[in-house]
Computed example of a mutant assay.
Amino acid sequence: MTQYAIFDPEVAYNTTDDKFINNIIALVREGVSFEDFSKFASRSAFSSSEWADYLHVSERTMQRYHKEQKSFDSLQSEKIIEIALLQKRGVEVFGNKSKFQTWLETPCLALGDLEPKSYLDSSFGITLLKDELTRIEYGVLA
């Protein structure tokens, strides 16, 4: 398995073997390249403005990363990977990317009547969304 398997939709969300986890840690430490981020981001339904918000950088910084083909720092890389894993989990729970995307954009009573995607800017928010996906999977709703 390559270090980029995290972005591969064929790799299961709950892959927990040590090699996979170590690859994730190595990728975070090395930094996700803009090229790999771009490939993943193009398959997500988030705009460049939303990605900038989630990664706590300006759109201008994102443009500079693109121009210079720069890698993201470890904190940004970790957030990219957390969102990639959340997307994998969401697709597993909802059955396809389109249904998961609809859920992300629909206000949810259990989340304070906010759109789930509004929580993607923090690790605590991403954890909250993972927990909510588990509740949905097991039919435990708000």
Rank of each mutant, 00 (worst) to 15 (best):
I80F: 03
S48P: 07
E78W: 07
F72E: 01
L104P: 00
I6G: 01
V93H: 00
D36Q: 10
L111V: 09
V28C: 10
V57I: 15
T61I: 12
A5S: 15
L86V: 08
K79E: 04
S98P: 01
S38K: 05
R135C: 07
F94M: 10
V57K: 01
S49W: 07
E59N: 15
G125A: 11
D131I: 09
G112V: 05
S33W: 00
V32W: 02
L120C: 07
T102D: 08
I126S: 09
L129I: 13
A142S: 13
N22R: 10
S38A: 15
T134D: 15
K67N: 04
I83Y: 01
G95P: 02
V91E: 07
S123R: 15
E132Q: 14
H66G: 04
K39Q: 08
A110E: 06
N22M: 12
I21K: 14
E82M: 14
Q3V: 14
G125S: 12
E105T: 03
D53Y: 10
E10S: 08
A45L: 07
T15N: 05
L55S: 02
T127Y: 11
S123F: 12
K99C: 07
L133F: 02
I21L: 14
L85G: 03
D18F: 13
W51N: 06
I81P: 02
E82L: 12
D18C: 11
G112L: 05
P116C: 03
G95I: 07
Y13N: 11
K39F: 08
D8T: 06
L75R: 14
F40M: 13
S49T: 11
A41Y: 00
L104I: 05
A41L: 07
K88D: 05
Y119G: 05
H66E: 10
